[in-house]
Design a protein around this nucleic acid. Structure first.
Lengths: 269, 269
DNA sequence: TAGTGGTCTAGACCACGCG
DNA sequence: GCGTGGTCTAGACCACTAA
């Protein structure tokens, strides 16, 4: 009743318009790390239902512009974390690399869905090593390496996760790596993953599947899931037709060079 | 009051449980292309509000298991479309490749946000060539190539999109490609993109940014957005330490690995 | 025109974090 | 304990597709 006068070409959904306004506001009046007002206040301020406001916030979060935490609040996010994906297997042979941290190492039946990709029978035994990718004390990804027992036969049952993982990787190193195939797609985090990533179940993630080939067969399969809101996958220099290897960039394993921009994208100054 | 003696660790949200049930149902009783009951019926059947059901459906769609269209209905999706990303620039020098279709070719001021990445001044002029990636008559991605006029000076103003694009690409071919840098992240489709992809605004997309280097400077920048629900990015064989080059791309790339499964994804049978 | 998914509302309660 | 975001409900209307 209030507004019968305006014609409202509308066409654009309310949540999208809201998103646009919020983007402008964030970029002009906020800096990374700053807190936004709470959802109820924001909804009231813009004259929309909370659900509609949340639809806009969800998109901003998926874009990596906001970070929301239950109980805490909504803060403006910094630039995305670069996850360096190279051609050497991200140091798989060699756990504790850079900001990565071992989660566990087990041996169990292959998770059905991966049997074909690993080139093993449906219920074959495989070693599984999981590690966590950290950034600013925050888990941003879970990396999971599967190795068929046909490749690395067995490791003592009683060893701790750390020793088991190290052992499997050491054995794996004896297989000369021929090459790898890789795919990237979007998925949703299952409850356990979500817990490790400190996000609600169903959180969108980037799923990177890498298949390592040695001696003509699949020696290992890595399935890594990264928080879609906070991560960007960065691929190293790839050569063109016949260029010379300039190499260089993004080589350092410990701390990926993060190309200068540091805090360029957002942040006032 | 310890009234609950049971472990009760989970407290899984309803939408997630719903998702799980739906996944099982879909995998056991449906095949690609089949229609699901409408949302109101499904919600009633599972005894939840429609909004809750929709939350589950949204996730299934993001995973690529369902495909929803306004006015039509919800159908079980076939396997994801493999988007082959190689080291040759996806045939950029050479438009109409595979299932790709030219959208338009223009010359205008650089979109601000890309100036730095292109290595040009804020309002410098750049050529822009857009093409559409199709699959089963359906647009699944929009690929956009930016070329600074410092690299390809000018093309006649009056030419049609097709001629302009061809001209820019032919000029570009004279610059020997040294290498490329690439990143992948998640974003949301802006209204125009969304329209081209036949999706509502804000649809999640995979954003692939590729920077082409020639003679020590950025010769071109490609920004491609693919529907996150229907696409998987497939990277060609990448060599490890010292493997032999099996290569093979260019051969029969029209149909990447696509493991035999699923007859015609959709369309009656 | 009938039926579908897409948007939006105005509530309610819950689970978590922090002081 | 209080404030936050997360979940859920039961409606309503709109925009689109297809018969």
């Amino acid at each position: 009743m209030a507004t019968t006068a305006t014609v409202e070409v509308a066409a654009e959904p309310k949540y999208w318009h809201l998103r646009t306004v919020l983007v402008q506001t964030i970029e002009s009046e906020f800096t990374a790390g700053q807190s936004l007002p709470n959802e109820r206040d924001l909804a009231a301020r813009f004259g929309v239902a909370r659900a509609t406001l949340r639809q806009a916030l969800e998109q901003l979060e998926l874009e990596g512009r906001l970070s929301r935490r239950r109980g805490a609040g909504t803060v403006v996010a910094g630039p995305r974390v670069d996850i360096a994906l190279g051609t050497q297997g991200e140091g798989w042979p060699g756990i504790e690399l850079g900001d990565r941290q071992l989660v566990d190492g087990t041996t169990a039946a292959v998770p059905g869905r991966l049997a074909a990709q690993l080139g093993v029978r449906p219920r074959a035994m495989v070693h599984r090593i999981r590690r966590r990718q950290l950034s600013m004390r925050q888990a941003v990804g879970i990396e999971c390496l599967y190795v068929p027992r046909a490749i690395v036969p067995r490791v003592p049952e009683l060893l701790g996760d750390n020793r088991r993982a190290a052992l499997v990787l050491r054995h794996l190193r004896h297989h000369p790596l021929q090459g790898l195939t890789r795919s990237v797609e979007v998925g949703v985090a299952e409850p356990e993953e979500a817990r490790l990533l400190e996000r609600p179940p169903g959180t969108p993630v980037l799923v990177v599947t890498t298949s390592y080939t040695a001696q003509g067969r699949t020696a290992a399969l890595a399935v890594a899931t990264y928080r879609a809101d906070t991560c960007r996958l960065a691929f190293g220099d790839v050569l063109g037709d016949h260029g010379d290897a300039t190499e260089g960039r993004r080589g350092g394993p410990g701390a990926p060079p993060v190309p200068a921009m540091a805090m360029g994208t957002r942040s006032a100054s």
